Simulated assay, not measured.
Amino acid sequence: MRLVLRTSATVLELDVRATRTRFTGRPVADAGRYEAVVDGAVVASGTAEAHGVVELDPVTGLGSRRPGPVATVRLGPLPTGEKDVEVWLPYGEITVLVALRADAPVAAASEQTHPRWVHHGSSISHGASATAPTGTWPVVAARAAGLDLVNLGLSGNALLDPFTARAIRDQPADVITLKLGINVANHDGFRRRTFAPAVDGFLDTVREGHPDTPVVVISPILCPMVEDRPGPTSIEPDSPGDAPSFRTAGRPEEVAEGKLSLAVMREVLAAVVARRRAAGDEALTYLDGRELFGEAEWDRMPMPDLLHPHDAGHRHMGERFAALLPGLAGLRR
Results as ranks from 00 to 15, higher is better:
115 P>L: 12
53 V>R: 05
161 D>N: 04
171 Q>Y: 08
159 L>S: 02
143 R>W: 09
114 H>D: 06
60 T>F: 10
77 P>I: 06
110 S>D: 14
67 P>K: 02
118 V>M: 06
86 E>W: 15
155 S>E: 05
131 T>G: 11
112 Q>G: 15
81 G>C: 05
105 P>T: 08
120 H>R: 08
164 T>I: 14
159 L>K: 11
123 S>V: 08
64 S>K: 04
110 S>M: 03
65 R>F: 14
59 V>C: 00
44 A>P: 05
105 P>Q: 09
99 A>W: 05
159 L>E: 04
111 E>A: 15
133 P>E: 01
146 G>E: 05
46 G>C: 05
142 A>Y: 12
104 A>K: 08
77 P>K: 02
151 N>Y: 14
113 T>H: 14
154 L>F: 14
115 P>C: 13
94 I>A: 12
113 T>F: 13
65 R>V: 13
62 L>N: 00
43 V>P: 11
77 P>D: 01
88 W>H: 15
144 A>R: 15
140 V>H: 08
47 T>F: 10
52 G>H: 07
126 H>F: 15
161 D>M: 12
76 G>C: 05
81 G>W: 12
147 L>E: 11
109 A>T: 04
148 D>S: 12
91 Y>Q: 10
69 P>F: 10
108 A>S: 13
116 R>C: 04
96 V>I: 09
59 V>I: 13
95 T>A: 01
82 E>Q: 11
92 G>N: 15
122 S>C: 11
146 G>T: 05
142 A>E: 06
151 N>L: 10
90 P>K: 11
56 L>P: 03
121 G>P: 06
46 G>F: 13
60 T>R: 02
98 V>I: 12
40 G>E: 03
55 E>K: 01
169 R>S: 04
127 G>P: 13
102 A>M: 06
69 P>V: 02
98 V>S: 01
167 A>M: 13
53 V>D: 01
133 P>H: 07
81 G>M: 08
43 V>C: 07
131 T>C: 02
147 L>C: 10
155 S>V: 09
55 E>D: 00
96 V>L: 13
77 P>R: 06
55 E>A: 02
62 L>I: 00
134 T>Q: 02
